[in-house]
């Protein structure tokens, strides 16, 4: 099932995958996230995805990274904070003409 050849694949399939990895690795580097705690949380998210029958793909993997980062940052950013901010982003996307940069209203 594994490819024997060295395949030159892009590092990321979607920009958000790079951004979420960047967030996690940067927080580890700057001491805001402990590497072992991160590995355990990500491992738990991966095990859960597997138990739920999620496809064994890079997309599932990065979704677990996202889930794990939401979990480890909960002391600082609550689910309610995220819900509010997401609604703001969705609104910003809806009112921004196509092709214009999407920014949050300050």
């Amino acid at each position: 099932m594994f490819q024997p050849d060295e395949v030159t694949e892009p590092a990321f399939d979607h920009p958000w995958q790079a951004q979420i990895m960047a967030l996690a690795q940067t927080m580890i580097k700057t001491g805001h996230l402990e590497a072992t705690h991160w590995a355990e949380t990500l491992g738990a998210a991966l095990r859960q995805a597997e138990a739920e029958g999620a496809p064994d793909t890079a997309d599932t993997y990065y979704t677990c990274v996202l889930q794990a980062l939401e979990t480890v940052t909960e002391p600082h950013v609550t689910a309610a904070d995220r819900d509010t901010r997401r609604a703001q982003w969705e609104e910003a996307y809806k009112v921004t003409p196509h092709g214009q940069p999407v920014v949050l209203k300050s």
Binding site: H14, Q19, L66, R82, R86
Partner: peptide
């Protein structure tokens, strides 16, 4: 997409609060 919005949400909050 949903994960892109979740990432943007988390990133903007972490930036705003000085974590990154």
């Amino acid at each position: 997409s949903d994960p892109a919005l979740r990432t943007k949400t988390l990133e903007s909050l972490l930036v705003e609060r000085g974590f990154v």
